[in-house]
Each structure stands twice: as structure tokens, then as C-alpha cells.
């Protein structure tokens, strides 16, 4: 039964690696469905990771860290909203600015405050999220052969944020698809003039979307600094915000397919780590970099329309100008 254990370990690490992607992808989805293109997911997650690392260390509470992380990312989101919605600036330019701002500011402040080259001090005990064992996990492992092991390793035993991240997918899908707010929000991304004609504030809806986007980025960033690692490391997002963006495009701007895309990209990452230096029969040494580049490559191929067709929200990236 050794293969079951190996499989379970890979799946487990894949789930963990996909969590930041998942949060950022949901964040991007909210923003983009409302017509605000966001390539600043990376920067917002980074700032959230930093704020969470600092506050979790200072307060000794992981939950306070989560609050700080979400707040920091929401603030940065509002900067993006101010530029993109209120001043109708170029959304791509604003996103690039936010990424640079985050990359520089986190290192400067971290270095000035703690003098460890931008790192925040290691978190211990209550400053990190403990793993939660789901009911019957140990018992299932004993009594049910394959499924029990998978349940114990893959489904059970994650930190609270992991389950929160999965819940955010369900919530996103439900709110966008089944509520009035969600319908209006999607309409604002497709045809803002129509929403305006109906007497609903375009700017208000877009700001709401941008704030939700910030909160979700905060969740992802906090997970990186407080759950996955024990503290903030400079540039720790390492392109995850962009892979999340790729996942959103891959999923055609829909929540549940985005979940699968994130899990797929997370699993690829886990496999890449596992295959480091391993020689497979018939293939030889697998270049790990090829697997790491796969999400980006797949997105380009998809965008080029060689597989399927990508249809972004119609008004995405366009500032709304009210008719006079």
C-alpha cells in the first residue's frame, strides 16, 4: 500500500500549494467580473502576507494576523479602485504600480523594523494556525483501506484557512450566480451602461467588487505567511498571483472551473517538487522547470484559442463614463 501513501502525500501537498492560488483566483474573478482588470493580485497578496506576518508576531494571534492581512490588501485594492474607477486610469498600469509598490515597501519596512533582510520573525504557537483534524480521520485510516488514508491525509488535517478558501469558492459561485447583488455585479462587467440606466451605481458596485477582491487576496497572503510558512519572506508570493490570473483565464472567469484550474496548478507544483532529481523509466531526468512553466504555457495556448475559446467579461478593462 505504499503507492497509496505516496499518492496521498502528493495530493496533500498539492492541496496546500493550491490554496494561495485559489484565494487569489477568486479575488481576481470578483474584480474582473465587475469589469476591473486586476494584475495586482500578486502585490496585494504580498502586502497581506507581510501585514499578517507582522501583526501575528506582534499580537501572538494568527487571527489578528488574518485581520491585518485582509485590511492591508483591501487598502491596496482601494488604491487600485481609486485609480481605475474614480479617475478612470489605465487598469493595467495601476496593477503594475501596485505590484512594484508591494515588492519594494514590504522589504523596506520589514528590514527597517526587524533587520533580517526583510523577513519577519518566526511565528510560533498561537501565532500560527493549527491543523484541524476532521472527525473520524484516524479511525477511517484504520478501517477503510484506500479512501481512509486519502481522507486522513488529503481532506483532513489542514489549517482553518484551507477550509475557508474552499468555502470562498462555494460562496463566490453562489453569490455571483444566485443573488441579486451577484447579478448586478456581473452586469456591471458586461454592460455598465445598462446597470446605470437601471439606477444602480456602477462605481459603487465596482468598489464593492474591488474590496471583496482585496479581502480574498488578504486570505491568500495570510495563508502564505502565517500558515504555510512561519513568517513573511521577501517576494514570497513568487508569481502565485499571476498563476491565479492564469487560472481565472483558464476557467473562463467562472468560479468552479477556477477551483479545478487552481488544484491542477497546485498539483503540478507538488509533482514538480516530488520529481526534483528523480529519473523516470523511459523519460529520464524530468526537467522540473518544464513542469513549473506549464501553467503559463497552457494559458498562452488557451488564450490563443488553440483549445477552447476564452470570453472575458465584455466591459473588462474599460473605465465607465457616464453619459451626459
Amino acid at each position: 500500500m505504499e503507492w497509496v501513501q505516496t499518492l496521498a502525500v502528493i495530493l496533500d501537498s498539492g492541496v496546500r500549494l493550491s490554496i494561495p492560488l485559489l484565494c487569489a483566483a477568486m479575488a481576481g474573478l470578483w474584480s474582473e467580473r465587475a469589469g476591473v482588470v486586476d494584475i495586482g493580485l500578486e502585490g496585494k497578496m504580498l502586502v497581506a502576507a507581510f501585514a499578517a506576518g507582522v501583526i501575528a508576531y506582534q499580537s501572538g494571534s494568527a487571527w489578528a494576523g488574518l485581520g491585518a492581512g485582509m485590511l492591508a490588501a483591501i487598502l491596496l485594492s482601494l488604491v487600485h479602485g481609486f485609480a481605475a474607477i474614480t479617475w478612470r486610469g489605465n487598469q493595467i498600469v495601476s496593477g503594475v504600480a501596485i505590484n512594484m509598490l508591494a515588492a519594494g515597501l514590504t522589504v523596506i519596512l520589514g528590514n527597517a523594523w526587524y533587520g533580517q533582510g526583510g523577513r519577519t520573525p518566526s511565528l510560533e504557537g498561537a501565532a500560527r494556525f493549527p491543523d484541524i483534524a476532521l472527525p473520524f480521520a484516524a479511525a477511517a485510516r484504520q478501517s477503510i483501506p484506500v479512501i481512509g488514508t486519502l481522507y486522513d491525509e488529503v481532506v483532513s488535517g489542514h489549517a482553518a484557512l484551507v477550509y475557508l478558501a474552499f468555502a470562498s469558492v462555494a460562496l463566490t459561485a453562489f453569490v455571483l450566480k444566485r443573488t441579486r447583488f451577484g447579478l448586478r455585479l456581473r452586469a456591471v462587467g458586461e454592460n455598465p451602461a445598462a446597470v446605470d440606466t437601471a439606477g444602480i451605481s456602477v462605481a459603487g458596485l465596482r468598489y464593492a467588487a474591488v474590496v471583496i477582491c482585496g479581502a480574498l487576496c488578504g486570505l491568500g497572503g495570510t495563508y502564505l505567511a502565517v500558515s504555510q510558512s512561519a513568517g513573511f519572506l521577501p517576494h514570497m508570493t513568487a508569481g502565485k498571483g499571476f498563476i491565479a490570473l492564469a487560472a481565472v483565464i483558464f476557467a473562463n472567469w467562472r468560479p468552479v472551473p477556477a477551483l479545478w484550474a487552481c488544484l491542477l496548478f497546485g498539483m503540478l507544483d507538488a509533482v514538480a517538487i516530488r520529481l526534483q532529481g528523480v529519473s523516470l523509466p523511459g523519460i529520464g531526468l524530468v526537467p522540473v522547470q518544464a513542469i513549473q512553466a506549464l501553467p503559463y504555457l497552457m494559458t498562452i495556448i488557451l488564450l490563443a484559442g488553440f483549445i477552447g475559446r476564452s470570453t472575458p467579461p465584455k466591459a473588462s478593462g474599460l473605465p465607465y463614463v457616464k453619459e451626459r
Partner: peptide, 10 residues
């Protein structure tokens, strides 16, 4: 970053 924000987006 701030210059990009100010001279570009804002």
C-alpha cells in the same frame, strides 16, 4: 511604483 501610479494610472 509610485511614479507608475501617479504618472500613469492617476
Amino acid at each position: 511604483g509610485v511614479i507608475i501610479l501617479f504618472a500613469g494610472a492617476l
